[in-house]
Design a protein around this nucleic acid. Structure first.
Length: 371
DNA sequence: GCAATTTGACCAAT
DNA sequence: ATTGGTCAAATTGC
């Protein structure tokens, strides 16, 4: 009888690796769940938690790398067939967010995979508490120059005392905050310029929140949005909005407001899921403060919150940069996802949808695929 | 006229 | 020296 995993062998190598990464992620998530079940107070050894979280987030990062970002000559293809995608529309946007807490003390926390090694999977990149000097670059540098372990690449650094929340999205959504653009710069090894935004109320209220928007793919448009520092301004959030496809990240003028159901006009916004990555450092405040919209989660708290977002999830949960009340999920070994206890769960249809996506044998069941 | 954006220059991290 | 991030004067749009 054929092995249950025999089908994997017939897939292209990058897909196999991606599947391997996701499978490993499931297993590590199970371990994390066991830890959580064994501790009501979640006062786990932060080091071991960091390690597990790092493993999981590393796998997501690797998967994302494999699927798209490190293949400069590849594009990410959105579903074009409703049958293929089981109710996904080809023009529906999707969002990927990764959030992880990085307890590294290093200021040079670039997690990345050199393109020349893009398929050499790195699953420990977030175990940075113990490898603070290790800097891996996910540059898709054509020259594939090597990064010597222990050495940092010139110019590649992140400022100290800051955390970052990275979101990859096919659309530019309004997170409800007022942003003012203050800069735009050509970034090395990126064909698109990066736009810099700060909170409009920086002067008025001293809000230090900033975000960066950079297009990482042309067709279909794919943007990387990085939020840094949390909002401290008191202004009420605007209703969530979606920015219609704009070829230029600089263009944030086309906004369509939509309600909590994620509807914009007759078009349903269906960001399939989020995986949000947080990089925080020791100055990060507590999770309670995070929830109070005052600051970022602490690495001392268990703050791995992978969360899935479907069309029925309130959009506040989708693009709220403050990270409040996100729906969260964990993936079980069976390919299904179970909501974590401390978060509200997704509607069953959404679990089904996600199950369909990830329980399938081919990337065609992903909301995108590598051409 | 005011506010937002653009863009070259400057600063800081490595 | 190189690069990313920010500043601020000039420009643009309402």
């Amino acid at each position: 009888m054929e092995s249950p995993t025999a089908w994997v062998e017939s897939l292209p190598v990058n897909r196999k690796k991606a599947i391997h990464e996701l499978t490993q992620g499931q297993e590590w998530t199970d371990k994390l769940r066991e830890i959580l079940r064994g501790s009501e107070n979640i006062e786990c050894d932060p080091i071991s938690l960091d390690g597990i979280v790092g493993q999981i987030m590393g796998m997501f990062d690797n998967t994302l790398t494999i699927i798209g970002s490190c293949s400069s000559n590849k594009t990410i293809k959105f579903p074009t067939n409703m049958d293929e995608q089981n109710s996904m529309k080809s023009d529906e946007p999707f969002q990927l967010q990764t959030r992880c807490l990085d307890s590294s003390r290093s200021s040079g926390e670039h997690k990345s995979t050199n393109c020349s090694e893009s398929l050499r999977l790195q699953t420990n990149y977030l175990d940075s508490s113990h490898s603070s000097n290790e800097q891996k670059s996910r540059t898709c540098d054509e020259s594939s120059r090597m990064i010597i372990p222990g050495k940092t690449k010139r110019g590649c650094y992140k400022r100290k005392n800051s955390w970052a929340s990275t979101q990859i999205t096919s659309i530019l959504t309004d997170d409800g905050h007022a942003w003012r653009k203050y800069g735009q710069k050509k970034i090395l090894e990126s064909k698109h310029e990066r736009s810099y935004y700060r909170c409009t109320y920086k002067v008025d209220q001293g809000c230090q929140a900033t975000k960066q928007v950079q297009m990482i793919e042309d067709e279909p448009p794919l943007y990387k949005i990085t939020y840094m520092k949390s909002h401290t301004c008191k202004n009420l959030q605007r209703a969530p909005q979606i920015i219609l496809d704009s070829p230029d990240p600089r263009d944030t003028s086309i906004l369509v407001n939509f309600g909590a159901k994620g509807i914009t006009g007759n078009k349903q916004v269906n960001p399939l899921f989020h995986i949000m990555k947080h990089e925080s450092e020791d100055s990060s405040p507590s999770l309670s403060n995070w929830r109070d919209n005052k600051s970022t989660p602490s690495t001392n708290c268990l703050s791995l919150d992978l969360f899935a977002v479907g069309s029925q999830v309130p959009l506040e949960s989708v693009s709220n940069s403050k990270g409040l009340d996100h729906e969260a999920f964990l993936w079980s070994k069976h390919g299904n996802m179970t909501s974590s206890g401390t978060y509200s769960s997704m509607a069953s249809t959404q679990w089904h949808e996600m199950d369909h996506m990830f329980g399938s044998n081919d990337f065609n069941d992903f909301p995108f695929s590598v051409l």
